[in-house]
Simulated assay, not measured.
Amino acid sequence: MPHIQVNINKVGEKILLRHPFSVTRVPLKRHVIPGIILGFNKLRSRYRVLYKDLKHQNDFVRNWIGVEYITSTTVSKEKVRRKRVAKPKLHTKKTSHPEKLNKIVMTHEDYLNLLDNDDFPSGISVVYDPSPDGNCQFEAIAHQMQFKGIHRSATTLRKEATEHLNQQDAFYRQFVHNMTYEEYVSSMARDCYYGINLTLVALMREYNMQCIVISPQGRTHTRLISNDEFYDRMLPVLSIAHFPEDNGMHYVSVELQRNILIDYLSDFEQPDSTDKKSADSDLGEASAERKHEKGKKSVQTQKANETETDNVRKKMLSRLHKAVLEKRSGVHKKTIAFQRLPLHIQIQIVKYCLNDPSFRFVLERTHGYFRSC
């Protein structure tokens, strides 16, 4: 049925209001009162109007009024409109009259600005706005795939989607109602034919990906396109936005901040994901405890080896010191063969001797490379 678009009144214009602003079972006497536009809300189709209260003639009221209670802007325009609409009645076949839309018609730019509204977080931004020519869904998906290292054109994605629909017709046939499935697939293969949720599902299953679709109507209208309608942490996620328009739909490529994306995806996690997380955390704690115990054992073993090495070194140094004292006192006893000691013991002894001049004679009985130290 055709629609009559409602005129968008500007701020400061003088309008006529139908009063009272309510619908009851008992018909009430309606009055037409003047008012001035102070502001408007396109999303809710309301105007903020300043008008006189009928009960108190001297009081002015500021209130939000729906479009259905607003007439033409002036009385003269209202008379002209009535003369134009009035036509002589002819005995002809009845035709359906245009239906008046009690809302403000929103443009494409208005829908894009909805993402900057207070109802949405500031971390959502449009990064690519394709032309609304019927290929916007495939253009937005192709733009998002570039961030994942997959470069496909909109024509290629449309072709792959239709091929997937042909191959998996047993699954998708149940979702097509207004035409036969073969007619739908052949229409989707044509250029500039609007893609719908079915083609999104086909592409995500074809590439084994997930796609979150942001809606300007609120978070409750946001949906996730995946294999089982749940979020899988192992699969990549694409992010697009869907804007309803007067003659169809439009898709754009959007970017979400990481914390906002995680918050949105948490709505689509599986119900038993918390149990799985707790089980994984328990397993992680158990493995961490085992690693901690192994680390304790390795540290204890290392400390024991170091203690044993220090004891051996101390014994060797004490015996060498005793031999030096006996040498000075003229007592001739069999000394230790320095060359037979382990290399790391010899190095420790040499370092110790360098700090004490009384042991310099030991260097004369060692190899040449020790003398150079």
Rank of each mutant, 00 (worst) to 15 (best):
E163A: 10
M179V: 11
G368Q: 02
G195Q: 07
F243A: 01
E306L: 15
F361G: 04
V85T: 11
F138S: 02
Q346K: 10
M316T: 15
R219E: 14
T73S: 06
E139D: 14
T92Q: 14
A142C: 08
L341D: 01
Y231R: 03
I65S: 01
E206I: 09
L157N: 00
V32Y: 01
S226E: 05
Q5M: 07
K55I: 10
Y231E: 09
Q174V: 05
L238H: 05
S266R: 07
S281W: 08
G248N: 09
V67D: 00
K100N: 13
R223I: 08
K303Q: 13
L261V: 03
P244C: 11
H31Y: 11
A337I: 10
L112M: 10
P2W: 04
R30L: 14
R190L: 02
D272N: 06
T95Q: 09
M209H: 10
D232E: 07
R340Y: 06
D228Q: 03
S226T: 07
D275A: 14
T95D: 05
D272I: 03
H250Y: 11
A86G: 07
V23C: 13
S266N: 12
I212S: 03
K334T: 14
K294E: 06
G284W: 03
I240V: 10
S273Y: 03
P88L: 12
E229D: 15
S287E: 10
C211S: 08
F60M: 11
L283A: 14
H97Y: 03
F138D: 00
E289P: 04
K52P: 02
T180H: 03
M145F: 08
T222E: 11
F120D: 05
L235I: 11
K276N: 12
L200M: 13
I196G: 09
A288H: 02
K55N: 13
G134C: 10
T155K: 04
A161K: 04
I345D: 04
R46T: 15
T180R: 08
L235D: 12
C136E: 08
L343C: 15
G218W: 06
I33Y: 02
M1W: 14
D129M: 05
T107R: 06
Y194W: 15
A142W: 00
K327M: 12
K314V: 01
K100D: 12
N355F: 12
E308L: 11
D267T: 06
I36L: 02
L341V: 06
N311H: 14
K14T: 15
T92D: 14
S239Q: 02
L261S: 06
C373E: 10
L17F: 13
E68K: 14
E306A: 15
Q137G: 03
S72E: 09
R365I: 12
C353G: 01
V312S: 10
L50S: 15
M204A: 10
S186L: 07
R84N: 15
E68P: 00
Y47D: 05
K29G: 12
Q167Y: 12
N227S: 09
V312L: 12
N208R: 05
V299W: 06
V185S: 02
H177A: 10
K333Y: 10
S131Q: 09
E326A: 13
G39S: 11
N41H: 12
L238N: 04
